[in-house]
């Protein structure tokens, strides 16, 4: 599978992004708010028009010639950050879970409700007492379970998770992450896991992709990425993750600081260059393309860190 996407509108939210996900693996997509990671996910499930480029899924082209609407591509489902808002407040949660089957129209009501109840049990909810309740009677974590159940009821092969745990408490976050990992192996899902939290992404991902201002700056197998990120932005992101295990004295980590990263529209240089501590004249002049590095890694940087293949005196 490969997804090169270019979306051109008045604002270029995502521009020239290309990557692939192998069947059965989880790709963690990381970036700060507004970097285009959600737009990318919405483009895959057909909630956002794609202006150029193509998305293939299972050898089948998803983009091009399709009108908007018509639902997610068969086999792909998505869960959202604000799970409570993703449930219709006036519909009972049991019916909400069964709704995709109703739209599908292949099952009768009794089968639908039976399947929905089974799915509720699968995600750790008790259908006997909870089926008829409305979303506002549930906590954020329970709502996310409900939305996972709804996504799974059409037996998708791929699940896109858009910041599924960012608005949850740590204890509940752990429950949901464990649940996602369990259903992934149980249903053999391929996952695109979007998050701004690198430690959460590490827990679920096989590969990690980092996005900055609408473009990818690094893709790598998770293990290698966390050991030594190549892109300065990825390194800054990793350094900014708060450490829950202070060893008494915390050495001050060099933070990136930049007033407001205004993307200069006409700039042809690297997008990260205004914030980059390693920027050199070449970075301002030419935008680096994503290039292949050793160890199945790709990076969009003229002077990657920790790299033997490119000289870097700053590292």
């Amino acid at each position: 599978m490969e997804y090169p996407i270019g979306r051109r509108a008045t604002v270029q939210a995502v521009c020239g992004v290309s990557f692939g996900i192998q069947k059965g693996e989880t790709l963690g997509l990381v970036g700060e708010s507004g970097c285009g990671k959600t737009t990318l996910a919405r483009a895959i499930v057909n909630l956002q028009p794609v202006s150029s480029g193509w998305i293939d899924y299972n050898g089948q082209r998803l983009t091009g010639g399709r009108r908007q609407g018509g639902g997610a591509p068969t086999g792909i489902q998505m869960i959202f950050q604000d799970a409570t808002a993703s449930l219709n407040p006036s519909r009972s949660v049991g019916k909400t879970i069964a709704e995709p089957l109703r739209i599908d129209g292949k099952t009768d009501r009794r089968t639908r409700y039976r399947l929905a109840a089974e799915m509720m049990r699968d995600v750790g909810l008790e259908p006997a007492t909870m089926f008829g309740r409305r979303p506002f009677e549930f906590s954020g974590g329970q709502c996310q379970r409900i939305s996972i159940a709804r996504a799974l009821i059409t037996s998708p092969r791929m699940l896109i998770c858009d910041e599924p745990v960012s608005s949850l408490d740590v204890s509940v976050q752990a429950q949901i992450l464990n649940l996602l990992r369990r259903i992934k192996s149980r249903y053999g899902l391929t996952m695109l896991f979007i998050s701004h939290d690198l430690s959460v992404v590490k827990n679920v991902s096989d590969h990690v992709a980092v996005m900055y201002m609408g473009a990818l700056c690094e893709i790598a197998p998770a293990a290698r990425f966390y050991q030594s990120p190549l892109h300065p932005y990825a390194a800054a992101l990793l350094a900014a993750v708060p450490d829950p295990d202070p060893d008494g004295s915390m050495d001050p980590v060099p933070r990136i600081f930049f007033d407001d990263p205004d993307p200069t529209p006409g700039s042809t240089g690297c997008r990260y260059q205004p914030r980059c501590r390693h920027a050199r004249p070449r970075c301002a002049a030419r935008r680096p393309a994503l290039r292949q590095m050793t160890g199945d890694r790709q990076v969009a940087c003229h002077f990657p860190l920790h790299s033997s293949s490119a000289p870097d005196e700053c590292a």
Binding site: A174, S199, K202
Partner: peptide
């Protein structure tokens, strides 16, 4: 319950 960078990947939280 906090996922940590030092944890191994895919570990149960």
């Amino acid at each position: 319950a906090i996922p940590r960078l030092s944890d191994t990947a895919h570990a149960d939280l």
